[in-house]
Amino acid sequence: MSTAAHRRPLPLQIALWVFIAVWFMMAAFPFFWTLWGSFKVELDFFSIADWTNALTGANTQSTYGSPFTTAGYEGAFIQNEFWRNSINTFIVCFCVVTVSLTIGTLGGYALSRSGYKYVFWLLIIALMFRALPQITLVSGYLPIFFDWNIWGYLPTAILVLVAINQPFTLWMLHSFFESIPKDLDEAAKVDGCTQFQAFRFVIIPVMWPGVITTGLFSFLLAYNDFVVTALILNEGNRTMVPQIAAFLGTTYTEGNVMFAVAAVVSATAPLFILVMFFQRQIVSGLTAGAVKG
């Protein structure tokens, strides 16, 4: 495609490069800056005197004898026991992904194989549920959870997150199963399988790409959630994100902003790795709904 007609005039090419560079800086710079700064002391991270201190770590050098320090991480993980929150996050994410994929696959498969009109309505209802701000639901849960004494525990939060996740999971898996030819399970049924056997032996072996993509988004929803975990978990069971929010309340007064910075960097790292490995799935997942609908 390098014919003369396709070659861009130089000013346009330059404008394009400048734009790309500016967007690259906007997207990536904040994270690198915070990662770099998390190994400094607060006076360097927030440099009032000279902003180059944040790069060279002059104050870190004079405090710890080296331009890098892991004091923030030690403070967060050891002093404030942030590792507990990390474990909670791991439990919540693992359970949410497993449960919501299990029931979501069954539901999404059923939606894609039933030709009746109610499928449309179920999908529209799911879309409306997806539109509800989570916090409005949480204000509905609280009095009931208090009454039943299930407020504050991880399983409660997991159940809630699974349910909140369902509308999106259903939409995605529905459109994915639509792309698997119906002939496959029809053939199995002709050979004498029940619907469930057809699902079990014919569909399950070929459904993994779609399920993995959907699972990624379930994971992101559970990992990034703030509203549900902050309002439903008690202090001892907090996951990472509400704990970081809690750091803001307590550590700002104690002058330990660096704990929060270290916690933020630690909570972002898994997401970085996730995007690195699953970039293609994330992109295809985001576009699946769009291209179909």
């Binding site: 967007w23 690259f24 992101l220 703030f226 909570a267 997401l271 690195m276």
Partner: peptide, 14 residues
Amino acid sequence: IFFSLLPMIVTPLI
């Protein structure tokens, strides 16, 4: 694409 995804993927609060 990798770097462009970051602002969206990262936890909103973070």
